[in-house]
Design a protein around this nucleic acid. Structure first.
Lengths: 357, 357
DNA sequence: TGTTGGCACTCTAGGGGTGAGACTGCTAAC
DNA sequence: GTTAGCAGTCTCACCCCTAGAGTGCCAACA
């Protein structure tokens, strides 16, 4: 059933075949036009005739790495071709120094505010890769309560502010049946902090199951609410998504046709599938590439994503990445994503590294 | 210099001219194709011949309300034509009941969480108008501190959480030169809350100018930081913008051409100009319509915005609205925006209405 | 003076035809 | 196994042309 299990012989391409495929993908990415034998020869890296190249191309097409838009056109990589290129042929270079310094420079200009960091990260990714980008906020797997604060808003409305160990802050308003004073709320706040500090939703639940000292009536409802909210946070592994650079992607010729772009926008706006992919990337190791047409995006065959987790696994981690045309300069994008993820790792480590007891 | 000052006679259109203009705009909005005399007659509301209609059209064109894409095409409204239509001809109806109940239904399904409300509002606006939408978070003009909380993150890092009277929450991390304990921070937290509760940035500054009791060294830097942050909040009247429904807009025929859509995306991504327009709308009364090509969006001639402030002026107010093609059903969009703004007014009033002392 | 039918004119969108160009696959020779 | 040569295929850009929609003008009419 699995694609990879089915064609094991796909690996044994000759050196020249690999070279032809590599050149073709590179040239296609650069030119956005189908590549023929003549164009490949003109690149000057092959020391055979065009006829030989043609037979290699025909073979690569038979094997499923290439396809022809029509008989008299050059070849274009298939999904399988891109996969092979990415996994076997791409020179996995470090991001060139000029980019690194530019990114580093931008990151050091800003104050320590997570919101702005994430926005900046999205902007930097988008700008460096000339694509669209997305970044999710860092998140713990099982969040621990760092601080709860209850504030009187109105007679019968309470604002609850939760600060979790991963640095995320949640606020929510709750209505209670009787008027409450700020004094009473401050008192309850202290109690709750003493009781539940550093605990997970589960632990809070188990303390609740036992007797709660002196907490009954609406205060008990507040505790229930707290536990509920923390469970919500745990369930929604992906919360807010920062994005940038949609306009960049419109520069690419494949998006001349609006319907292609529509698919990309759909992909960014349909949170269900996006969340699925992002949460997979979250638990992956290193950079993950989802080529258009693969995985849950079967019908979005011309848009690819390059994603990487960042942060400290289970403690404060998120996903960042790039969304662009399948015909994208993967080597550059991958190295950019990797580098930015690494920057974020450093940042997160600095802030949440060894959390104090 | 001012456009309006230059053509005062533009007002005196005859009843029939107004009717022709009204019909033409409505028909053009519905059909997206230039409207000719024949089409107008076929609508059945005019009891004159096509020749008469033609001469009226020629006149309206001379006056600048209409234009022809080319000689043998029908007419299309100009910016001036749309303006006149919106201000004089549009029947300003209430949003039809089915829409109202649908929107009301959606608003009552969700718990009291501002973040989700705003996201929902954007989604509802986008869905009801089949356009793109944007919503800014409610904000006070001069925010007052409701609660500050300092939390030890790392030895030398402090997480500051600010809760302001308008319900917004800000978090930021600060590095200090020496290690600090949570106990010391809690103590400082209490001091700061006692000192500055319900104060504006300005008031905090003036207290700072006087002597601060027992606050020196890094704690003093924390206070400085607090004041700074609150000033930042005041300056940035528009902070986060929630948006939805970009994909809707791609359905419209004018966006077949990518460059048109690009302009819209640019408009949404270029925060400077967008913020300018939004902050103007924030201090306006009622629904504001910015027609493509007007105001700061001179070159974006085919995209319009319908904006409305919501909330309680100076206390907790924001802007919401719709972005779509200039050829949009203004009556429907305006009534939707107005209705949703009204819903939000209710919500905000419920939560921040009569803030307690 | 305002309205109308008639008419010549204009311009676009779309269909069909055509030729240049790019690329292929095949084959026979090296 | 490689190559040159060649016939074949298909697209794209271009042009031509027509149908159709719509106009402006004018003379006649109320």
């Amino acid at each position: 059933m699995d694609q990879r299990a089915q064609d094991p012989p796909s690996e044994d391409l000759s050196g020249r075949q690999r070279e032809v495929l590599r050149l073709l993908v590179q040239e296609y990415v650069a030119s956005a036009a189908p590549v023929g034998s003549g164009t490949l020869l003109r690149l000057g890296q092959l020391s055979v005739s065009s006829a030989t190249v043609r037979s290699e191309l025909a073979l690569l097409e038979d094997l499923g790495y290439l396809q022809q838009p029509h008989t008299s056109a050059g070849r274009v990589p298939t999904i399988k071709g891109y996969r092979y290129f990415i996994e076997q042929l791409m020179d996995d270079v470090e991001l060139p120094a000029p980019y690194r310094t530019m990114i580093g420079h931008q990151f050091h200009q800003i104050r320590l505010n997570m919101d702005q960091w994430l926005q900046l990260t999205a902007a930097v990714l988008a700008h460096t890769t000339r694509s669209a980008s997305l970044v999710t906020a860092p998140h713990a797997d099982h969040s621990r309560l760092k601080h709860i604060q209850l504030i009187a808003t109105h007679d019968t409305l309470i604002l609850m502010v939760l600060v979790l160990q991963d640095g995320s802050v949640y606020q929510e308003i709750m209505a209670v049946s009787e008027a409450v004073t700020q004094d009473r709320l401050s008192q309850l706040t202290n109690q709750l902090n003493d009781l539940f500090r550093n605990q997970t939703a589960q632990e809070i639940r188990s303390v609740m199951a036992l007797e709660l000292p002196g907490i009954t009536g609406w205060p008990l409802r507040v505790v229930e609410w707290l536990a509920q909210r923390m469970e919500d946070v745990d369930v929604r592994t992906i919360d807010e998504i920062y994005q940038a650079g949609l306009a960049n992607v419109l520069e690419q010729p494949e998006f001349e046709d609006v319907s292609t772009f529509r698919r990309l926008v759909d992909m960014m706006e349909q949170r269900q599938r996006l969340d699925l992919v992002l949460s997979r990337a979250l638990s992956a190791n290193g950079v993950q590439i989802i080529i258009g047409g693969e995985r849950p995006f079967e019908e979005i065959y011309d848009v690819s994503m390059v994603l990487s987790p960042y942060g400290i696994r289970d403690k404060a981690s998120g996903v960042l990445g790039v969304v662009g045309p399948t015909r994208m300069p993967y080597a550059h994008v991958v190295s950019t994503v990797r580098y930015v993820a690494c920057m974020m790792d450093g940042l997160i480590d600095e802030v949440y590294g060894e959390t104090r007891a």
